[in-house]
């Protein structure tokens, strides 16, 4: 399997925010810990709403959390 087109820096941002746990982030954005884990590992692309909530939780713009790498379809 190739690299997913949407990558993220959630692990890094959690580390930068005092080693915020997946559970704490999940509580802040209103999803389960397993969903945060799936997003972090690139196995699940969240809705726009959850993506914005994650960015808001870290107080950074959306593009600092998620990056889109355009690839040939």
């Amino acid at each position: 399997m190739g690299t997913p087109p949407i990558t993220n820096r959630i692990r890094r941002l959690r580390f930068d925010h005092g080693e915020l746990t997946q559970q704490e982030l999940a509580n802040r954005i209103g999803v389960t810990r397993q969903t945060v884990n799936a997003i972090e590992l690139g196995k699940y692309s969240p809705s726009l709403e959850v993506a914005f909530r994650i960015a808001a939780a870290f107080k950074v713009p959306l593009e600092e959390v998620f990056q889109f790498t355009e690839s040939t379809p």
Partner: peptide, 11 residues
Amino acid sequence: REARTPKDERE
């Protein structure tokens, strides 16, 4: 806590 949490979008 998990039992009380409503299903999220992935679920």
